[in-house]
């Protein structure tokens, strides 16, 4: 059975269809790229998957459990992690405290009023930070980190409660190519090691074609293609709406 099953979801904003009858599945241990031009409905789709938006109709199931109508924090509890297009971390907390926050939340200890937070989960947080290469900056405030580092902290936070599914919105935007590859390779390693499923959007085609196991393409709110790198490259519909006809815009 697939981990995630999306069945006929729809969403309209003020009469304009942002998502139109979209269905797809995501099996365990797969790195799935979601492509499409801006305004195609990628972010809307993401926001429905993690509960920030409610679809007008349709169903989203994680291992058979219906996610539609649930609050983001409940969906997180079901095992769905998420990173944002514009990285969201807690700026006034240290890198370590950011991770401790997730672990405290996982074990429902947020309302403890007495014992200092510093004494909770320090080791576990450092292990998670080490995975993304941020352990040496654990004591710095998130607000002063370089952009790429914030993205890595965010990834560590998204992985901290050992999710089954990870949603990543443009995980490598604004990163240098080398950093970019490292990050995606790290994610790929998690996919293999932990049998994690990842759905991500990405503008950089080289990243997608090199690492994604499978890709789906959105255009004007509809799913127009689903398949391997070769299928997508040669799909005439995709070429038309996404890659364009100009020779100068030939994909990688």
């Amino acid at each position: 059975m697939s981990l995630l099953t999306i069945d006929n979801i729809n969403k309209a904003f003020g009469g304009v269809k942002a998502i139109n009858n979209v269905s797809f599945e995501l099996p365990r241990g797969q790195l799935l790229a979601l492509l499409g031009p801006n305004g195609a409905g990628k972010s809307t789709c993401f926001n429905m998957l993690n509960g920030q938006l409610k679809p007008d109709s349709g169903s989203i199931k994680l291992e058979g459990v219906e996610l539609v109508g649930r609050h983001p924090r409940q969906i997180w509890n079901e095992g769905v992690g998420r990173t944002f297009q514009i990285s969201a971390t807690f700026g006034s907390l240290t890198v370590l405290e950011n991770l401790q926050m997730v672990l405290l939340s996982r074990d429902k200890k947020l309302f403890r009023l007495w014992t200092p937070a510093a004494s909770y989960y320090k080791k576990e947080a450092l292990v998670l930070l080490d995975q993304v290469g941020m352990a040496d900056q654990a004591d710095r405030a998130c607000s002063v980190l370089a952009y790429g580092d914030v993205k890595r902290v965010e990834l560590a936070m998204a992985l901290a409660h050992d999710p089954k599914l990870l949603l990543m919105d443009e995980p490598t935007a604004g990163m240098a190519p080398k950093e970019r590859n490292q990050l995606v390779m790290l994610v790929k390693k998690m996919v293999i090691d932990r049998n994690l499923s990842v759905l991500f959007t990405e503008h950089s085609m080289d990243v997608v074609f090199e690492h994604a196991d499978r890709m789906i393409v959105f255009a004007r709110g509809e799913l127009i293609a689903d398949g391997s790198a070769d299928d997508i490259r040669n799909d005439p519909k995709v070429r038309e709406v996404y890659f364009g006809s100009g020779k100068s815009f030939e994909a990688a």
């Binding site: 031009p37 801006n38 195609a40 709406v241 364009g244 815009f249």
Partner: peptide, 9 residues
């Protein structure tokens, strides 16, 4: 930035 290649043209 962030627009589909068709619009870019």
């Amino acid at each position: 930035e962030g627009v589909a290649p068709v619009i870019v043209e």
